[in-house]
Amino acid sequence: MSDAIAVAGLGRRFGAFHAVRDVTFAVARGEIFGYLGANGAGKSTTIRILCGLLAPTAGRAAVAGVDVAADPEGVKRRIGYMSQKFSLYPDLTVEENLDFFGGAYGFAGRELRRRIDAVVEETDLRALRGAATQSLPAGLQQRVALANALLHDPELLFLDEPTAGVDPVSRREFLALVRRRVRRGATVFLTTHYMDEAEYCDRLCLIYRGELAALGTPEELKDRLMKEAVLEVRTGRPLEAAELLGGLPEVRGAALFGESVHAVVENPDEAVPRVRAALEAAGFPGALVERIPPSLEDVFVSLVEERDRREGEIREVRR
């Protein structure tokens, strides 16, 4: 069987601005594929192209075997789409929303009822069918939106930052629902900037300034792409420590992670004593410096910094 999504050399320009440039990847059927990036990195543009809402200006994209530029309507029938804004009609009830969107896909009568019953069961919304959508908390609205996207049994589910602004418990429940669909054969394309959500994906793709920066399973990204080591530095004053560490020659980058500072170094065996010494000298007695396995966030921070450094060098040379 062909890939669920096949993207080759995809690009989209708005005037002189390249929102997406030369992106290539493939998503296998039955995969949860995470598409990560900062706001404005090109996530939404990509998802809009893949859903047939926006025509690409370069390259090709096929979704469920259908070319998005040639037959956007064909794509639309095969996919379910749910966006960060939970696009529901707030003044209609849950049931009326489902009625409407089911009707939009051409279902009617007994068939429509059967499908609504099924998704309501699946997303555990039985008790809320008659509730006004706007009165529901965000976590429940999100489930209604998912139910909406599942009504027509799409082979592919596009979730555009589906859990933005939702509490962690609801987020976990939501991801469990998505996982269940995947077990029944659906493929999921998910954009997010929550790292715990990213860990949940089978494979990840990092997009940075419209370009593909990394692609692989979460483990691969952590092992293979992270050449440097991560040191966790705990002091009483993380802000000042981060500033100090960032200025050390052996530290490639230092970033705040809650109460601690993560410092990226190339050679941990040499760096650890030096960092300790530097901290002592600067008046951070008893600082804890420890090598830790990198988290996804470390990986992305280091990837992005690496890229920025390289681009900076290119600019220097050009000058």
Binding site: C51, K76, S87, L88, F101, N148
Partner: peptide, 10 residues
């Protein structure tokens, strides 16, 4: 934002 949802529907 429902217009997006309508546009991805048939």
């Amino acid at each position: 934002g429902t217009i997006e949802q309508l546009l991805v529907s048939p």
